[in-house]
Design a protein around this nucleic acid. Structure first.
Length: 329
DNA sequence: CCAGCAATCCGCCAAT
DNA sequence: TAATTGGCGGATTGCT
């Protein structure tokens, strides 16, 4: 034990299982293992009771001739606060009644379920998604919508949280979705800590477009001309700043700045900025004892009113209510 | 919470 | 010719 013992009361996320079917998707499963399966408690980060389970346990084939031994059967999911479906291979036959029951019971006791990629097909086939908004990898979106016309499929986002059910697009969006859950249940500090350890960007929000166009490094001059500006913004959130001045700082016209910004982050400069401000506000609410007015100014909001406005819009709660959830007991 | 005003965003187009 | 840039105007959004 060292000094950094922190209490994570809130809604309590402790018991996490990944549920896999007859073929393992290593990356998607790896996301869950990486986020929930590593003990980082020495750094003051939350620790989870994590397990991978499948119907009947046993060895399952993965890619490249690899075989993964699953140590737990479905009964392990009975106590889960969160069930991760890393991908789902059997798409044409209906899922087994036992699996449907596990998912149903989980939702009834208030647990959450998150799907990565094709995992959404399981949730849909289990009848858990009627009337919900969901997302999926853009390649699957058509097939999903055709097979389950009752769903609202929005494939232009990284993830969608609709009540207890979170669906996410392919591969790396699973990271964003899982970090979102950690952030929502345990706070910004916990989520950022895990992200830092994983060396991934701490926050891409669900509404961010799936097609973030930064594939080829922009050859010769200036790979990301944006990176320094983004960093500067992060460090200066307490200031008021205009998009025009940021563009100037990046040595671009306002028009190209906005364009590049969209390509790199999937949002507009101002939306991103406000998002960062709110995130900072969240962590200040979690930790310190500054009042809302002081926090507002530290985050670059002109007044507590403006902070409240954006806070409610993004998170659906007020700053004070948010702080209450994190009040250490 | 609203009104009035400013900043921002986005499609279009001309210029490189 | 194709691709990129940046300026402009009007609709939208955000701030005081």
């Amino acid at each position: 034990m060292n000094a950094m013992v922190r209490v994570y009361p809130a809604k309590m996320l402790r018991d996490v299982v990944a549920l896999v079917d007859e073929r393992i998707h290593p990356f998607e499963l790896g996301v869950a293992c990486e986020i929930f399966g590593i003990d980082r408690s020495e750094e003051g980060l939350p620790r989870f009771d994590f397990a991978v389970c499948s119907e009947g346990a046993g060895p399952l084939p993965a890619a490249g001739g690899m075989v993964v031994q699953i140590g737990h059967g479905l009964e392990r999911a009975a106590s889960a606060d969160l069930i991760v479906i890393p991908a789902w291979h059997t798409r044409d036959e209906p899922p087994s009644p036992a699996i449907v029951r596990v998912l149903r019971e989980a939702l009834e006791r208030g647990a959450r379920v998150v799907s990565e990629c094709t995992g959404v097909f399981l949730l849909a086939a289990a009848g858990l998604l009627t009337g919900r908004r969901v997302t999926a990898h853009w390649r699957d979106a058509d097939r999903l919508a055709r097979r389950f016309p009752e769903l609202t499929v929005e494939c232009d986002r990284l993830y969608i949280a609709d009540g207890q059910i979170i669906t996410s697009a392919g591969t790396s969006a699973g990271i964003d979705a899982c970090l979102y859950i950690v952030r929502d249940e345990l706070g910004v500090a916990a989520a950022n800590g895990i992200a830092r350890r994983m060396v991934v960007p701490p926050h891409r929000h669900g509404g961010q477009a799936q097609y973030v166009e930064t594939p080829v490094p922009r050859s010769e001059r200036g790979t990301d001309d944006l990176a320094p500006v983004l960093a500067w913004i992060q460090g200066n959130l307490h200031r008021t700043m205009s998009v025009a001045s940021l563009a100037e700082q990046a040595h671009m016209s306002a028009r190209t700045f906005a364009r590049r910004f969209g390509e790199a982050t999937g949002t507009t400069p101002n939306q991103w900025l406000v998002r960062q401000r709110v995130l900072l506000a969240q962590s200040l609410l979690e930790e310190g004892d500054l009042d809302v007015e002081q926090i507002a100014h530290r985050c670059g909001f002109g007044s507590a009113d403006v902070l409240r406005h954006h806070f409610v819009r993004q998170l659906g709660t007020s700053p004070t209510a948010y702080r209450r959830t994190f009040a250490a007991t």
